[in-house]
Nucleic acid binder design. Structure first.
Length: 419
RNA sequence: GUGGAUGUAGCUCAACAGUAGAGCAUCAGGUUGUGGACCUGAAGGUCGCGGGGGCAGCACCCGUCUUCCACC
């Protein structure tokens, strides 16, 4: 059985600290869960993750079922044993991936009503060939239309989805029973209900139908659940519509022992507003997970609004591409997402570590000059060192936030980071 | 020595006589339930050199140099 217990509440915000007890160990919250989609946090070993201080690893049902298959993982002793990780594990349901990979996700440049580009935030949106508001970056309309035509659309049915594998194009069926059965075979401590995903561009009525599917599939997920030792998160949806979000939050809290918030957002403001709408409808004694978020600012703002768990590909994806986190005393600010771009020419002769003061293995050992060289030369070690530092940075930032909540100094820390 | 090619951005190459471009490299950005992927922007030119005809030349004509190929 998994149980959650609150340890402290912040006086000046909704921030809180707690502990989630799982069969594979305790997780102190708030916590950042590194993403290991295919049973590995890219470039990092399970030993690295332990050294970094990660408390849990999040993997993905969709990816792991395509390769190597849930049955292989079951026969090899479950996800944790399979990947040499002794701590708690979590699997995402695959609902998001069915749409983001099998359906029609492409990076696009959004244009707002005034025609100016939205480049600062989530360019991941879901489109269909009939979406005319979307243009691919700096390409002719003809090419954009050609790109859209190439997309193989999944078919959303009342109780599930037909979709195409991003690996070999094979057709697959996914529904709540399939997802939960796979997640039970893989055996993570925390699992997620199968959910439908709206596009942030959909109108109210279309979004409402999507939320209704998510609710139906959520109940079906609970009914499909046989193992009672796994904690199942329900997923809140409703896009950017306040009443849909509120109703979805109430529904999810009513039926599930743990709650999560899903979606994609066109701006940070929309994200924070969504949290303000949802959190008041969650009971205090249930763990709360903000799916797919976040950057440094989002972690502070999410925690301040009462969220306990986060996961995000940003630390590893950024890490692989030389976008490395730095703290405020070394130039980290909201405006630059608390990062530096190590490939910049100005670091060619820089003798400092990435983030002076950081206690991670990378900062204790290597200079910016050397790491820049590795990135420019496209050496494999570059991706590893970047990922290691970034995951360390984020995991331990959230740990500091957790300690601040326990000490009653959360708002002070938040202010010190300029947030 | 003779004949034929060749010369345009750092590199590899485009450009019908009518505003000199692309790919790579460089520089600067973007990336939120993973995409080792991709995208955006910037900088970069005495078109080998000299002359000629022509409203207008990277392009045509003459000379010259570079590099390459073939033949003697």
């Amino acid at each position: 059985m998994v149980s959650f217990q609150l340890l402290a509440k912040d006086k000046h915000s909704k921030a809180r600290a707690g502990v989630l007890k799982t069969p594979h160990g305790e997780i102190l919250t708030p916590n950042f869960n590194p993403v290991g989609t295919q049973g590995t946090v890219k470039t990092l070993s399970s030993l690295d993750l332990k050294e970094i201080g990660a408390q849990i690893v999040l993997s993905n049902t969709y990816h792991l079922n395509l390769r190597p298959g849930a049955q292989v993982i079951k026969e090899m002793g479950g996800l944790g044993k399979f990947m040499g990780w002794k701590g708690p594990t979590m699997t995402d349901s695959g609902g998001f991936q069915v749409f983001s990979l099998g359906v029609a996700q492409r990076k696009v440049m959004l244009k707002d009503s005034r025609g100016s580009k939205i480049t600062k935030f989530s360019k991941s949106v879901f489109l269909s060939p009939s979406d005319t508001k979307l243009l691919l970056p700096s390409v002719t309309k003809t090419r954009a239309e050609k790109e859209l035509k190439k997309l193989k659309e999944a078919t959303v049915k009342e109780d599930g989805v037909w979709f195409y594998s991003h690996i070999d194009g094979n057709k697959h069926w996914f529904d709540a029973a399939v997802s939960i059965s796979l997640q039970e075979r893989m055996g993570a401590d925390l699992i997620v209900a199968f959910d439908d995903h709206e596009s942030p561009l959909w109108d109210y009525e279309t979004t409402k139908l999507s939320v209704e599917r998510t609710n139906r599939w959520g109940i079906a997920s609970l009914e499909a659940q046989k193992r009672k030792d796994q904690l199942m998160y329900g997923v809140v949806h409703g896009g950017m519509y306040e009443d849909l979000r509120k109703a979805s939050a109430m529904f999810t809290d009513k039926h599930f022992p743990a709650v999560s918030i899903g979606g994609s957002y066109t701006s940070k403001e929309v994200l924070y507003k969504t949290l303000d709408w949802c959190v008041p409808h969650f009971q205090e004694d249930k763990p709360r997970h903000l799916l797919g978020i976040g950057e440094v600012q989002d972690l502070f703002e999410g925690i301040a609004r009462g969220m306990d768990f986060f996961d995000c590909v940003a630390p590893t994806r950024r890490g692989r591409h030389g976008s490395l986190y730095i703290s405020p005393q070394n130039g980290g600010r909201k405006e630059n997402n608390f990062k530096l771009l190590i490939q910049n020419a100005k670091y060619a002769l820089d003798n400092d570590p990435i983030d002076p003061g950081c206690e991670c293995m990378v900062c204790q050992t290597y200079t910016r000059s050397y790491i820049r060289h590795l990135f420019v030369a496209d050496e494999i070690l570059a991706q590893r060192l970047g990922s290691y530092h970034n995951v360390y940075f984020i995991v331990n930032l959230v740990k500091r936030i957790r300690e601040a909540i326990l000490e009653g100094s959360f708002s002070h820390l938040k202010e010190a980071w300029g947030i």
